[in-house]
Structure formats: structure tokens, C-alpha cells
Amino acid sequence: MQADKLIICAYHNVGYRCIEELVRQGADIALIFTHEDSPTEEIWFKSVRELAERHGIPYLTTDISLPENVERVRAIGPDFLFSFYYRTMIKPAVLEIPKRGAFNLHGSYLPKYRGRVPVNWAVINGESETGATLHHMVEKPDAGAIVDQERVEIAFTDTAFDVFNKITDAAAAVMARAWPLLREGRAACRPMNLAEGSYFGGRKPADGRIDWQQSAVRIYNLIRGVAHPYPGAFSHLAGEKVIIWSAWPVEGTGEPGRIVSHRPLLVGTGAGLLEIRSLQAENGDEMSATEFITDARQFT
């Protein structure tokens, strides 16, 4: 019996791990679409391109939805199409080609946190759990029927990086379970109720600006939600941009943005105090709060 033929669109650690799992199970991957790394982005994750090269799998770094690539996919005639953290919307003309379906691995417990950067949003919003979901791809993003999903805990001390690592493990576990069932035609298919979920857009570095009128917990969640390797949460002190990489909410009161103590470095918020533990002045090096010296008294 001839093996099912796969085309995969993938990037980042989730893409890397899911492809690794399919290779481990002996899947016939005919072609991989991935991305060129952006020169403006900190590349801290594994390379799908290098994984493809190591296993001798053909790959392209051009958009799968380009007309010439649609024809290329049609000529291959895949049984399955998978998208693992691919950053470009895949057009319906592509989704209709695979004989047995097109599937996406999303980094949230759908239908919650459909859309962009779901891990960061979940941490910023103070969620206690999220997950990884494999679902059918349809024209509307992250809206197709659910095949399998796995929850992951978000600890109050977790950064978005910590949660992303948990989701990467969960994604690989989902694929380990789901691929044999998909291959055998026995996979579950549960319609997604979008009314029970939420949709979020992408984030820009400017969205990391701290609003000191918010509570210490809300500000702390923003800080850990955009900490390394992401651009960081920031404010201004004496006219200079300062990135706050690590902090902790504590009890107390103070005028929002006002430094009430330098040792430890405590700042007033809309509710509670925020203890800043590490920070970085613009064009400077990251340092602990105990190393940071300033006469300024107000973050803005």
C-alpha cells in the first residue's frame, strides 16, 4: 500500500518538532515550505530549513500561495497538507488540493486565542492555562473542526518563552497521537464553537509600553509576556527609554509610575507596587536593579 504523501508549511520550534515527529513515524514528506529568517528578528529558535536539509527533504522559502507554488502543490497531489507555525495565510486554492485534508497546529487551546501570537497574549492576559490544537484548515483563520488538543499550565512565574516551550512539547505530543489516526482515517473531528473563543491580532514592539495606571499584577503580566526573547516591556525615566525585563508585584501603595524605593526598586501602580528586578536603559546593557543608579523619581 502506497504511503500518504505530505506537504508541510512550517517554521519555528513547533514546526521543527512536529516535522521531527512525522519523520520519526516514517511519514512521506514530499515538500516543505518555510521562511527566510528576518534580519530584524532575534532568531532563537531551531531552523526548519536545516532539518529539511538533514533529512534530504526538498524545501522552498517562497509563499505556498504564489501561483507557481499552487501549481507545484497541485502537481505533487498530496494526501495531506500540514501547517506548523507557518506565518503566511494559506489561500483556499491551496487548501482544496490535498485529498485527505489540510490541518493546522495552533498554539492555544482553541477556540480561545485564535489569531496571532497566542502564547504572548495568554500570558499578558494572566491566563492559568493554554494549549496546542490540531484543527482542519478553512479560509477563516483558526476556525476549522478540532482533531486533537492538549492543555498546558501557565504558572504565575512563567514567561512567554517558558510557555512557548511547554506548547512546543504539547504540539509534538498531539502530532504523535494524531498522525496515526489521520493516516488510518480514524481521527476525531469536533466542530469549533467560535462563540466560546476569542481572536487576537499581532503585537508590535510599541505595544510593550507600560501603563502605570494599571495594577502591579497587570503590568507584571505584560513584562513576562514580552520578556526575552521578545522585545520587552518599556517605560521612560528622565526622558530615556528603559526596558524592564523582570519584575514582581508586591503589596503597598504609591503614585502610579513614582519610584518609592531604590533598594529594592519599587514603583507605584494603579493597585499595588511593582518591584523591578532587572532592566536595561536604551543603548545600555541589561542589569539587575541593585546595579541600576538613578536620581530620577518618576517613570512615564
Results as ranks from 00 to 15, higher is better:
residue 127 E to G: 02
residue 175 M to S: 04
residue 167 I to V: 08
residue 114 R to N: 15
residue 111 P to S: 10
residue 176 A to V: 10
residue 148 D to L: 15
residue 153 E to N: 11
residue 142 D to M: 13
residue 153 E to G: 05
residue 132 A to F: 07
residue 111 P to M: 07
residue 119 V to R: 00
residue 159 T to L: 11
residue 180 P to M: 08
residue 154 I to T: 03
residue 140 K to G: 07
residue 149 Q to W: 09
residue 143 A to Q: 11
residue 160 A to Q: 02
residue 125 N to E: 12
residue 167 I to P: 01
residue 195 A to T: 11
residue 143 A to M: 14
residue 193 N to H: 14
residue 152 V to I: 06
residue 140 K to C: 10
residue 126 G to S: 06
residue 167 I to K: 00
residue 117 V to T: 09
residue 107 G to D: 06
residue 155 A to C: 10
residue 144 G to H: 14
residue 135 H to T: 13
residue 107 G to E: 08
residue 159 T to W: 04
residue 126 G to A: 12
residue 178 A to P: 00
residue 164 F to I: 02
residue 148 D to S: 12
residue 116 R to D: 02
residue 148 D to E: 15
residue 107 G to S: 14
residue 195 A to Q: 11
residue 150 E to F: 07
residue 107 G to W: 04
residue 145 A to P: 09
residue 173 A to I: 14
residue 184 E to V: 14
residue 164 F to T: 01
residue 125 N to G: 01
residue 137 M to T: 01
residue 175 M to C: 14
residue 156 F to I: 15
residue 139 E to F: 11
residue 192 M to C: 12
residue 118 P to L: 05
residue 123 V to W: 01
residue 127 E to H: 09
residue 176 A to C: 14
residue 139 E to K: 09
residue 120 N to A: 05
residue 172 A to Y: 09
residue 166 K to G: 03
residue 157 T to A: 15
residue 128 S to Q: 15
residue 140 K to S: 12
residue 111 P to Y: 02
residue 132 A to D: 05
residue 140 K to Q: 15
residue 139 E to Y: 10
residue 179 W to Q: 07
residue 172 A to E: 04
residue 158 D to Q: 07
residue 114 R to A: 09
residue 194 L to I: 05
residue 159 T to R: 01
residue 193 N to C: 13
residue 108 S to V: 13
residue 143 A to C: 15
residue 114 R to S: 14
residue 124 I to V: 11
residue 116 R to P: 06
residue 174 V to N: 04
residue 114 R to G: 09
residue 153 E to T: 13
residue 165 N to R: 07
residue 124 I to M: 08
residue 107 G to P: 07
residue 188 A to V: 14
